[in-house]
């Protein structure tokens, strides 16, 4: 229960940050990427300060033996650059450049009641679910041929 409540509170902090920063505003996001047009550098400040706070905070947090509410840290251990990572990221960038929403920006935008955000998130969930199904369907075959 405590874990759930704290996750909700941390979600509030995240959503407030996204809303204030402009990441939930497609017009602002697209203008950040539009170097040849009406360039709005704001998002570089968002990424910069988020990264700085996260790096300093992680430095201290990850010195602990375990998180406060869980027995262990869940950290990705894969360090390989593979085709899935690079091709997936390239696709994500193309979609982000088309719609102006990234997942972390679109989810809090739902709370603004904007229809574009709801349409984007619905399409994105279909995309994630389709990709998840495709990978799970392919996996046994890959294992058999390997």
């Amino acid at each position: 229960m405590r874990r759930t409540i704290f996750a909700g509170l941390i979600g509030l902090v995240f959503g407030t940050g996204i809303a204030i920063s402009g990441m939930a505003n497609p017009a602002k996001v697209l203008n950040f990427f539009d170097l040849a047009g009406d360039w709005d550098p704001s998002l570089a400040f968002v990424m910069g300060s988020a990264l700085l706070v996260a790096a300093v905070g992680y430095f201290f947090v990850l010195k602990r033996d375990r998180p406060i509410l869980e027995p262990r840290f869940h950290l990705p251990t894969n360090r390989k650059l593979d085709a899935s990572l690079l091709a997936g990221s390239a696709l994500f960038g193309i979609g982000w450049g088309i719609a102006g929403f990234c997942p972390g920006g679109a989810i809090p935008a739902l709370g603004l009641g904007e229809s574009a955000a709801w349409i984007f998130v619905a399409a994105m969930l279909v995309g994630i679910a389709a990709a998840k199904t495709a990978r799970d369907a392919l996996r046994p075959r890959v294992a058999k041929t390997a």
């Binding site: 995240f14 204030i20 402009g22 990264l51 996260a54 905070g57 998180p67």
Partner: peptide
């Protein structure tokens, strides 16, 4: 400020939930 809050949320989720 918004970026700092996003960073803070990341640190808190690592600190509390790992």
């Amino acid at each position: 400020l918004g970026g700092a809050l996003i960073g803070l949320a990341s640190v808190l989720l690592m600190a509390f939930h790992g």
